[in-house]
Design a protein around this nucleic acid. Structure first.
Length: 670
DNA sequence: CAGTGAGCGAGCTTCCGCTTGACTT
């Protein structure tokens, strides 16, 4: 009897597919990649160990030939697969239908020593029909696509292992740089610098409570035809007014309140326009992380760990995806839930479809959704606590994606009291649509969602109360872990499988800290970012990945040769930049402390001011370095303690440590 | 003379992306 070995990436997928293909097929998982460039010196094969180029794992001057090894953790799965290959007379490489999957298929051919009798099998849906059809309609491996993946891998290696040593030289041993992490760090550093440079300006906001029965809030827009200043009217760098808007003094604000309380307002104009809010798309990895962060206060890592459990338990589809699209069966299931709960009118007559808008999306999987042809209601899953909460979020989001848009009317009233002009905005909902099931957690609600009375032009309304509040123009907000992921996804940096790990890399290197769910950058992070911006400007350019992707697409289409691209990119580009990079420690100014700079000496981050130096505490967030704190540090006083920001692990655990201590011990005993 | 400790030098670190368990905390 003949048997066919089918190799997929994930074990839960293997189990399901085995059921659909039945006897005659053996389905086994590769657990992702099975070969890679050597990551440490110890992994370099002996025959290359003495070669200088082997440090990179890529023979640059010999056509950028990579050295591939089977990492220690993957030896077991490779030998299992080898044994299965022996028993099979045909192998179907059913890894994911994307660039990385194509490469895994090719690595399997190489690592398992397949000579013939192998084919590539791809599918976008795990249903019995789709799988059986896919097993019949196989194709050869797409070597151009594999070449694009190898180019991506080589670029990331050359950049990462080429640039990181510059940091060891100029800043501190063990630091790292890379295409993805350095772009993420640059975004954080840029935002933190804008915050530090921000000069806030005070302004007054005057509001009145108006109405006969139900009161509504109106805001003073202007006086005698001159507009009242709002945050947009100030230059964030100086705090100075940059338009001709009116900034009230405290006294004027008080007078305005008294004036308003003393007389009714008349309606100058009313405007009523329809508005709508589109149903949200089903979850991708990135949007799941954002919503779980807002609604459930989970970090991206926590969300992914929970989603992994839900996936393994058969509750949801695959959780690492960049596609918001639903299969036909899932669309029908979502509509069925909506109709059962809210009636036939809850869904549009034509099912909604969603396509990826993220750059660089590969769409190998469908959206994250409840599994199966019929969605299990959350309360019938047997799940509890956080797992239940996350499943419930996914369930409601998926069903909501198939429901009607929210529609309503937006009303704007313009009012006047003497020379004072006021405005009020209100909304009424005519069709709640998807919001019956799924409410976005939104900021900036309040006044915008009030209901305004139905009044005519020229009508007079009593003012019940008025007040003036002193406000300050806000500094740009910090990223959260989830909002950084969203920002990276938007420019195509990182992949669903790496979003959570990018954050942990930044944390482990000491570049960032999470403080009260906000992602803050440390002084070390600012120094590294400043150094890279100066030494390797291309690396921190947000467009870098987008440009790379465009070239990789050309390689995949056969329009560009791998070696030509890598030569232009590396030998004629980054290799030169790296050779010319400065070897000095970077220093960055402290915006609010004139004459002070932060730099690094002997691997330690220090503050330098007036010829004196002081080490900076690791947990001192950059914008907490005020003139007072700086003065205290320089006379050796510790800054005021606050609850320590937790760091997940001790700095830099070294995997090579055991072998090096063993070597030292051996030497000392001889 | 044995035991201790300061000081020195050698060697290593590092990337991104695809998967789970096997480890600690």
């Amino acid at each position: 009897m003949s048997t066919t070995l089918v190799i997929v990436e994930s074990p839960s997928k293997a189990k399901k597919i085995q059921g659909y293909l039945g006897s005659g097929y053996t389905v086994h998982a590769s657990l992702g990649h099975i070969r890679d460039l050597p990551s440490t010196k110890a992994e370099i094969p002996e025959k290359y160990a003495s070669e200088a180029w082997a440090r990179l794992g890529v023979h640059v001057s010999d056509g950028f030939k990579p050295i591939y090894i089977v990492p220690a953790g993957k030896k077991k799965v490779v030998s299992e697969l080898r044994a299965l290959v022996k028993k099979a007379d045909r192998v179907l490489l059913a890894t994911d239908p994307d660039r990385e999957g194509e490469a895994i298929a090719w690595h399997l051919v190489a690592a398992l020593g397949l000579k013939s009798g192998f084919e590539r099998m791809t599918f976008h849906e795990i249903t019995k029909e789709a799988i059986q059809a896919a097993a019949q309609h196989t194709r050869p491996i797409d070597y151009a696509l594999v070449g694009a993946q190898e180019s991506r891998r080589i670029i990331d290696r050359l950049l990462g292992y080429g640039v990181s040593p510059l940091l060891w030289n100029s800043i501190s041993s063990g630091l790292s740089a890379g295409r993805v992490q350095s772009a993420a760090l640059a975004a954080l550093a840029h935002r933190e610098q804008a915050r530090m440079a921000h000069v806030s300006a005070p302004y007054w906001r005057v509001t009145a409570q108006i109405g006969n029965q139900k009161l509504f809030t109106a805001t003073v827009l202007g006086v005698s035809g001159q507009r009242l200043a709002t945050p947009k009217d100030f230059d964030p760098a100086t705090g100075q007014l940059k338009t001709d808007a009116l900034v009230l003094t405290a006294e004027q604000a008080g007078q305005l309140v008294t004036f308003l309380k003393a007389r009714p307002v008349t309606v100058l104009s009313t405007e009523c326009v329809p508005y709508s809010t589109k149903s949200p798309a089903p979850f991708t990895t990135s949007t799941l992380q954002q919503e779980a962060s807002k609604a459930l206060k989970l970090s991206p890592k926590q969300s992914m760990d929970l989603a992994q459990k839900l996936y393994e338990g058969g509750h949801i589809t695959y959780m690492r995806t960049d596609s918001p699209s639903l299969s036909d069966e899932a669309t029908a299931a979502a509509r069925a839930v909506a109709v059962a709960a809210f009636g036939q009118g809850a869904v549009p007559s034509n099912p909604r479809t969603y396509a990826a808008k993220a750059k660089n999306a590969q769409e190998a999987h469908e959206a994250i959704r409840p599994s199966g042809k019929v969605f299990k209601a959350p309360e019938t899953t047997g799940l509890a606590s956080d797992e239940l909460a996350l499943y419930d979020l996914i369930y409601r989001r998926t069903v909501a994606s198939q429901m009607l848009d929210l529609t309503g009317m937006k009303t704007t009233l313009i009012l006047k009291a003497g020379a004072v002009q006021l405005g009020a905005i209100g909304r009424t909902v005519t069709e709640p649509g998807f919001t019956r099931l799924y409410q976005d957690v939104q900021e900036g609600e309040g006044e915008e969602s009030q209901v305004l009375p139905d009044v005519q032009q020229g009508a007079a309304l009593p003012v019940r109360d008025a007040k003036a509040e002193e406000k300050k123009t806000p500094a740009p907000g910090r990223f959260t872990e989830a909002s950084l992921v969203r920002a990276l996804e938007k420019v195509g940096v990182g992949r669903p499988s790496t979003y959570a790990s990018i954050l942990s890399t930044l944390d482990h290197r000491g570049y960032t800290r999470v403080v009260k769910r906000q992602l803050t950058v440390t002084w070390l992070g600012l120094l590294v970012s400043a150094y890279l911006a100066q030494a390797c400007a291309d690396l921190v350019d947000v467009q870098f990945t987008a440009h790379m992707e465009a070239e990789l697409d050309q390689i995949a289409e056969g329009a560009l040769k791998r070696e030509a691209y890598l030569t232009r990119f590396w030998s004629e580009g980054f290799a030169r930049t790296i050779a010319q990079a400065p070897q000095r420690a970077p220093s960055v100014p402290v915006p609010r402390v004139p004459g002070a700079v932060v730099t690094v000496r002997a691997g330690e981050v220090i503050l330098v001011m007036n010829g004196r130096t002081a080490p900076l505490p690791v947990d001192l967030v950059p914008d907490e370095l005020t003139p007072e704190v700086a003065a205290d540090l320089l006379v050796g006083k510790a800054p005021p303690k606050r609850p320590a920001a937790k760091r997940s692990t001790a700095p830099r655990k070294k995997s090579g440590k055991t072998s090096s201590t063993r070597a030292t011990r051996k030497k000392s005993t001889t």
